[in-house]
C-alpha cells in the first residue's frame, strides 16, 4: 500500500482519538478564513474609512497646518454658506454638469447607433472616438488650451482665415465654463458610446427579426424596440456622468485657474484652494462633506432608478 494512504489513515485515527477535531463543515464560518480579506481591509480602513471619519470630524473643528483647534460646531458650514465664492462654485458645478451630461449622453447614443455594425470602418471610428478617453487631464487641457488660446490658437487660426475673431473661450467670463465643457466632452465621449454599444449588442437579434416580419419600418423599430431596451443604460450613463462631472477639477485648474473672476471655479477647485492654498482645513473639510452629500444623492438616485426598472 502507498504511503499516502497510510499517512491519511494515521491522521484519521488521531482525530478519532478524541482530540477535538475542528468541525468538518467546509462552509462553516471560521475566523482564519478572514485572513484572505484582512490585507485589503487594512488599507480600506486606514486609507478610506478612517480618513472619511476624520474628515467629518475636521469639518466641525477649526483646523490649519499647525494643528486641529477647538470644536466649532457648525461654524465652518455657516461660513461656507456665507461665502459668495463657495455658492458661486456650487452654481458653476451644476452649470457645468448641465452643459456636459446631456451632450455626452446624446452624442454617445448617436455614435453608438451609428457605429453599431460589424464593419472595419465602424471599428476604426469606435477606436478613434474612444482614444481621447485614455489621455490624462494634463494632455487634454494642453491640447484645448492651444486650440482656444488667443492669437496663435487653432481656433484663432481658423477664424483668421475668414478674417473674424474667435470667441475668447478662456478669458470671457460667460464663455469660460463652455470652453471647459467642450474640452470635457471631447475627453469623456468614449465611455458613454461604449456603454451604449454594449447595451445595443445585448438586444437579441430575434426581436429585430420578429419586428421585420411584422413589417415595422426603421423608425418604428427604433422607437418600440431599440429605445426601450437601452433605457436602463441611458439612466446609468447619465448618472455615471453626473457623478463624474461633479468632480470637475483638473480641467478648470489647468485651463482657466477657475477664472476669470471665479466664473469657472467648481467645488473641488474651491476645496483645493481653501484647504491647500489657504490651509483652512476645517472649511475645506466642510465643503468636501457638502460635495460628498451631493454625490451620494446622485449615487442613490442611480441605485433606486436602475433597481426599480429591473423589477419591471
Amino acid at each position: 500500500m502507498v504511503e499516502a494512504v497510510v499517512s491519511s489513515r494515521e491522521e484519521f485515527s488521531s482525530s478519532l482519538a478524541g482530540h477535538k477535531a475542528p468541525p468538518a463543515n467546509v462552509n462553516a464560518a471560521q475566523w482564519r478564513n478572514a485572513l484572505f480579506v484582512a490585507p485589503y481591509l487594512f488599507f480600506f480602513v486606514t486609507m478610506l474609512v478612517f480618513p472619511l471619519v476624520w474628515g467629518i470630524w475636521l469639518s466641525f473643528h477649526k483646523a490649519d497646518t499647525f494643528g486641529v483647534g477647538k470644536f466649532v460646531g457648525l461654524a465652518n458650514y455657516a461660513r461656507l454658506f456665507g461665502d459668495r465664492i463657495f455658492l458661486l462654485s456650487v452654481g458653476n458645478t451644476f452649470y457645468f454638469v448641465l452643459l456636459t451630461v446631456p451632450a455626452l449622453a446624446l452624442l454617445g447614443l448617436f455614435l453608438a447607433l451609428a457605429l453599431n455594425r460589424q464593419t472595419r470602418t465602424a471599428a476604426f471610428f469606435r477606436a478613434a472616438y474612444f482614444s481621447s478617453s485614455v489621455l490624462s487631464v494634463t494632455i487634454v487641457t494642453l491640447i484645448w488650451r492651444i486650440v482656444f488660446v488667443p492669437d496663435f490658437g487653432f481656433l484663432a487660426t481658423v477664424y483668421g482665415w475668414f478674417d473674424t475673431k474667435a470667441p475668447a473661450f478662456l478669458s470671457d467670463p460667460n464663455l469660460a465654463m463652455i470652453g471647459i465643457a467642450i474640452a470635457t466632452i471631447w475627453w469623456c465621449l468614449g465611455l458613454p458610446m461604449m456603454l451604449f454599444l454594449s447595451a445595443l449588442q445585448q438586444v437579441p437579434a430575434e426581436i429585430y427579426e420578429a419586428a421585420a416580419l411584422d413589417n415595422a419600418n426603421r423608425w418604428q423599430t427604433f422607437r418600440s424596440i431599440t429605445l426601450p431596451s437601452i433605457k436602463r443604460t441611458f439612466i446609468l450613463v447619465v448618472l455615471i456622468q453626473v457623478v463624474l462631472q461633479f468632480q470637475l477639477f483638473g480641467q478648470a485648474r489647468l485651463m482657466t485657474q477657475g477664472g476669470p473672476n471665479n466664473a469657472s471655479k467648481p467645488i473641488v477647485l474651491y476645496i483645493y484652494d481653501v484647504a491647500f492654498k489657504r490651509w483652512d482645513l476645517g472649511l475645506g473639510a466642510a465643503a468636501s462633506e457638502i460635495l460628498f452629500i451631493l454625490i451620494l444623492i446622485a449615487a442613490m438616485a442611480q441605485y433606486f432608478l436602475t433597481r426599480n426598472r429591473g423589477e419591471n
Binding site: 480600506f44 486609507m47 472619511l52 474628515g55 475636521l58 468632480q247 473641488v268 484647504a275 468636501s288 460628498f292
Partner: peptide, 15 residues
C-alpha cells in the same frame, strides 16, 4: 466605499 468620492477623504488623508 464605492460611493465615497476621493475629495471626501482628501484633506484627512493629507494630514
Amino acid at each position: 466605499g464605492l460611493a465615497v468620492p476621493e475629495q471626501a477623504v482628501l484633506i484627512a488623508r493629507h494630514q
